[in-house]
């Protein structure tokens, strides 16, 4: 056990946990943010994806000691029902989720993609998203929703909404 300070969604959390605990379990079971999901525990499915300093990262294999000092953003940190991130809004517009369990990770990956490439090609989307498994089979809608989100940018080229 050790004192570990995590910066999650702009808030500092002082935790006394095993430094080897994967970030996923610290987020879910210690900090109590349940939107980030456990799917495989070996970075194969993408359900646990969060942003580390803006980059999509698999939290299920990332020890908390390695993220001290980094800014972590989870699905709860990019938008809310009242103030949706454009990617979340596009996910609603295209009715992407079925069970929805993998979608937090999918949305985090898509949001990071659009930050890097505001108007991604189909190849860009495939490359960014193929690490994510959806057993309900929503891949086509995910692709559509990313294009929809790309079109929803403000004239300045910034993603609107969310914080």
């Amino acid at each position: 056990m050790a004192a570990i300070t995590l910066d999650i969604n702009g808030k500092k959390h002082d935790l006394d946990i095993d430094p080897k605990m994967p970030l996923l379990w610290a987020i879910r079971d210690v900090v109590g943010l349940k939107g980030t999901k456990f799917g495989c525990g070996m970075a194969q499915c993408g359900a646990c994806t969060v942003h580390m300093n803006g980059h999509p990262t698999r939290s299920c294999v990332l020890p908390v000691q390695s993220v001290v000092g980094s800014k972590i953003t989870t699905i709860e940190g990019i938008g809310t029902e009242e103030n949706l991130h454009p990617v979340q809004k596009a996910w609603i517009d295209e009715q992407v989720p079925q069970c929805g369990y993998c979608q937090s990770g999918q949305i985090m990956a898509a949001a990071a993609l659009l930050k890097d490439k505001p108007t991604p090609t189909d190849a860009d989307i495939t490359s960014a998203m193929q690490g994510h498994i959806c057993r309900c089979g929503t891949y086509d809608r995910i692709r559509k929703a990313i294009h929809t989100a790309a079109k929803s940018k403000s004239p300045k080229g910034e993603m609107s909404g969310g914080k």
Partner: peptide, 10 residues
């Protein structure tokens, strides 16, 4: 139910 499923609240 979709908004809850895309915001981590479901």
């Amino acid at each position: 139910d979709v908004p809850a499923r895309v915001t981590g609240k479901a």
